[in-house]
Amino acid sequence: MRRSMLFLPGNNPNMLINGNCLGADAVIFDLEDAVSPAEKDAARILVRNTMRYMDFRGCEIIVRINSIDTPYWKADLDAVLPYKPNLILLPKTGTASDALGVDAYMAQVEARTGLEQGSIGLMPLIETAMGVENAFSIASCSKRVKALFLGAEDLTADLQCKRTKEGREIEYARTRLVVAARAAGVDVYDTPFTDVNDDEGVVKDASYAKALGFTGKASISPRHVEVINQVFSPSLKDITYAYEVVEAIAQAKAQGKGAISLHGKMIDAPIVARAERTIAMAEALGLGKEERHE
């Protein structure tokens, strides 16, 4: 489960060693934009050693490698794959073949280092107009692709429009990505909210992303992590309702009824599926148990 994903600059040792204490469900060690060309090798070594020595139990590791139009991406993968990150975040993925090229190289490294084939996932970062238009084919090109990730900063530059807090300019990209990812059966993550001092803005932005169907949201500031976790966790009301749905369905089955209503509303398969997802998430988070039994 990844509600929040926190970017940590790959060249900042203090942030890296404290990365697992900042409350994020996943951290993204960034070898790309946060690191200047002169520091690419140093950051790669630092990130590799962080993965080698640090205990990140309870916090997934994602590494943003450099894009395939740079000379760095293969060396990035060579360095980090042996330490089994959960996902590789591939910037500027424009086409399925971009993702497949990286997929193939990851398979080579896995074979070379004795890792199980396909054990490390790939998360294409969609941040170009081309990527948005190809979102479904990217999401469905390989079993290794586990999720899509929207990057609004580069995207708006490519779209030649201004990035705003309200985000009207990325509305199409957001909905397109959610639909593409869900059609392909993978997760989908929203772009970071970049004003680190706007505590209300991040709640609004994250709530909107959740309403659109995003699985979670990335952050560039540790201060946003807790808010994002809260927004993407089921509320007590959701959890209570989900248990009611499941209980109602169980009763209906016991009574041999095909359909049943709850609070005057028919319970159908999509509602049951949503309730089951909510309960699974609540159980994983340890939420709602005590309150329900009070």
């Binding site: 203090n14 942030m15 204490c21 900042l22 540790p222 807790e226």
Partner: peptide
């Protein structure tokens, strides 16, 4: 400092 804020929380 994010670490300080985590401790404070």
């Amino acid at each position: 400092d994010p670490v300080g804020l985590v401790m404070a929380s």
